[in-house]
Design a protein around this nucleic acid. Structure first.
Lengths: 345, 345
DNA sequence: GGTCAGCGGGAGAGCGCTCTCACCACACTT
DNA sequence: AAGTGTGGTGAGAGCGCTCTCCCGCTGACC
């Protein structure tokens, strides 16, 4: 736990290089319009002194921070403990790093904490925000919009799919669900059930919609509501077996739910996939690969989602790589999903 | 993607309240030594104007940032995708938030990235760092020490357990391992095997040491090396069955490894726990609870580890809650583990 | 040779805040 | 009545940087 040593300033570098502060500043910020001889001299001085610009002083005048907040509004541990989040974070980090931006992580601790986050964002400490808010009734998106911070959402915010130029990145939950159900149908299954996710989240709603797209006039008893947890999957599967003993396929809203359903199916003596085919969603590896049989599931490129969110935000801030787009307001993106065939269907 | 509005300054608040900048500053920073009447007037002005201090300007003079970097040096996705990390982060976040510090997340992207992180930390952008570095040969801890940033490590850094006042928070891997093995012994098992973790990580070494503490003169063939993955667990378990068919218990270095071992045991027709008792480590819920049978394992309070790391760092920075300790240099902490009994042993 | 772009470089004014220091009023001592 | 505190307040000097002027030099053109 040593203390920080006094650090050289622009002034010091200028003195050593025999130029003015302004020139050093020019060199440090790209060096345009400075003679090569001087550029060289300044670079050398910077090197020798180990000069690093003071970001606070710089921000004070530029009003830029080169920092982006990542807000995770997840009261429950469930989603947070998901590898999902970690991968997204990694994607975000990669993109931000590539553009020399820092990542400030803001986790909300319970309901009352939104105000704190709102205050922070409104405080102008960061140039923009990447927000994960999965619940339909979450007040955070509103709050952030009002704070006037450029924002990109992770996952479609429930309250306002399209209004007021909200930008989000989501994966094609609906399309992925359609693929899954079509795959089951392609296997010759006719009594295809769906175990939903927590329906206060857009991803769950979209997956249900995808199921309905294919099963146009499905028996409503083939739909059982759950909450993305294994326990919920168990409960829902019992209901389904009870209501429709002739069920021959199940599309579960995520892999965790599928793992619960799988356990109940095994208990009930149904063979998977012979008697009942089963498909999950997410391709959450520690679960999907470890079940017996391994889970057929729908994969989304999580890391790419994160990367894209950051890229969109940076572009909106006019910091993106120029070639990537025309600048201006970026629009939302929905990423494709792919069906991963394993043994369960 | 709206742009930020111009924000009121101290000056503006001062004008409105009819006092000087200095007085407003005093009020904003605690209000000591200012008459109540003025405090009230200033508070009102702050409120009405929606004043939020400019952190950059503040840092410029105080040389404090109220920001802590969390460095995750994990080239592999394995540990990163672990819920482990998310929980630790949550603990850290809670503690930092309670003390009004921001969390700047730094993920290294591959080997060459250490320099970037080192530069950032040396750049004095943050007041301290919380570093997760699990590998014995990781150059990062050295780099950080040299950068002179107050640091607390997550997990015992391999290179120098005790030298130079390195502060870390770890869980009692060795003690937990001992408990696990003793539990197996208490079940009357005598041929107790150990599947190690990746031995370039201190946690794996410590768990192995704990095993050896109990199995003082264990048959060396009862130790199989793996790498914390399910695949590694499978491989190691096959070796063990091959070398020591009479094995009647296995202590696996973590739950993932245990899940792999479990699969091999089942394939081999060994009943768990009847023929072979099995214990994991970590209590990684999506795995430990979902296996069949559910895993007996060693739990560590991950969130508390994170919270403690942050608390230690803040205390070293003289920012902790005063009552918590005498200040001064904090020392490392090793947190206890608890054995969670489920069905596998 | 004189004029005028054009461009490289320096001077200096802040950005918004904290913090020291001087000041003032009032109370109290002697 | 003058001296000595004392506690509250304001003035002003920076913190380290960027950025706008503006100046001086060079070279082209008349």
């Amino acid at each position: 736990m040593t203390d920080t040593a006094p650090r050289p300033t622009l002034e010091a570098v200028a003195a050593r290089a025999g130029v003015s502060r302004a020139t050093v500043s020019r060199v440090v910020n790209g060096g345009d319009g400075v003679r090569d001889i001087l550029v060289e001299r300044v670079r050398k001085a910077v090197e020798e002194l180990g000069y690093v610009p003071n970001q606070a002083a710089r921000s004070l005048v530029t009003r830029r921070h080169d920092a982006i907040a990542v807000v995770v509004a997840e009261p429950e541990t469930r989603v947070f403990a998901d590898p999902f989040f970690a991968h997204q974070l990694r994607g975000i980090s990669k993109e931000l790093t590539a553009h020399d931006n820092q990542l400030v992580l803001l986790l909300t601790e319970g309901r009352d904490d939104h105000a704190r986050v709102g205050r922070y964002l409104a405080g102008g400490h960061v140039d923009g925000a990447l927000v994960f808010s999965l619940h339909l009734d979450d007040p955070l998106p509103e709050l952030i919009q009002r704070a006037g911070v450029p924002t990109v959402f992770g996952g479609r915010p429930g309250w306002s799919g399209e209004r007021r130029g909200v930008v989000y990145v989501d994966s094609d939950n609906r399309g992925g669900a359609r693929d899954a159900v079509r795959h089951l149908a392609g296997l010759g299954r006719t009594r295809i059930a769906h175990i939903t996710g927590a329906l206060d989240q857009t991803s769950a709603v979209d997956r249900l919609d995808g199921y309905r797209d294919v099963m146009v006039d499905a028996d409503p008893r083939l739909i059982a509501e759950a909450d993305f947890t294994p326990a919920g999957g168990e409960r829902a599967m019992r209901e389904l077996l009870d209501r429709c003993p002739d069920v021959d396929a199940v599309f579960a809203a995520n892999d965790l739910t599928a793992s619960g359903a799988l356990r109940v199916l095994r208990e009930a003596g149904r063979r998977v996939p012979d008697d009942v085919a089963l498909i999950g969603f997410d391709d959450m590896l520690p679960v999907a690969e470890q079940t017996d049989p391994p889970l057929t599931t729908v994969r989304q490129d999580i890391e790419e989602m994160g990367r894209l969110m950051a890229r969109l935000l940076l572009r909106g801030l006019d910091r993106g790589t120029p070639r990537e787009g025309v600048g201006g307001t970026p629009s939302s993106v929905v990423l494709p999903t792919t069906l991963v065939r394993r043994a369960s269907a």
